[in-house]
Design a protein around this nucleic acid. Sequence first.
DNA 1: ATGTCGAGCAAAGCTCGA
Length: 257
Amino acid sequence: MRIATYNVNGINARLPRLLEWLEEARPDVACLQELKADGEKIPIQAITDAGYGAIWHGQKGFNGVAILARGEQPVERRRGLPDDPDETHSRYIEAEVGGVVVASIYLPNGNPQPGPKFDYKLAWMERLIDHAASLLVEEKPVVLAGDYNVTPRDIDTFSVLAMADDALTQPESRAALRRLLHQGWTDAIRARHPEPAPLYTFWDYQAGAWPRDAGFRIDHLLLSPQAADRLVDANVDKAVRGREKASDHAPTWVELR
DNA sequence: ATGTCGAGCAAAGCTCGA
């Protein structure tokens, strides 16, 4: 069972690339972020025609997350995190597919920092940590997939110096991610690629980031112990980033037994 | 670390968010 996460950066702008990737990678589950669309603007017919059932938590213009399942309809469990005081951001949706609980997460970017956006990011991470703890209690295979907007370690960014003031690399962001991991989640990419290789998932459109491989590893798939037991592979579909009209993120995936 | 995008608003080019 292959479960992927892909920040599409506009589902309509990206539709040809998304359909092409679904056709060639054939993920069983695809967690999408940054739909930047809702309602009538979600190209549901094209997704259905590609053979996928879908649920989404959309939003006009910004944010927006979805879960696609090949040949079936994901069974929605929740949208939004518990106790969220600001329901205007569509950043979390959770479903069960084929006996696995899957979440599609678009964690706040948090720039500029310090400031209210960074405070919002850290508060959002606290709510995610609380909810994740409740998921572990179920003792099921769970995959928390998405754009976390956090580089776990220095190796996960092309330049520690250039990123020194960035919300994605701040000690507070990393400490919050570690507290989540320390509950008992496995960072699937690191579990399969323990060598200190970058395995970036995002390259900015600006400043020639892609041609000079100036990326970050910020898209993660965190596995509950029951999911980690079944982990056989994980990787990044890096070539997708190099295509015409590409998203600034590459699809990232796990294969579970 | 700013050389770029995507979307909204409103009808082209600015603003915002990344």
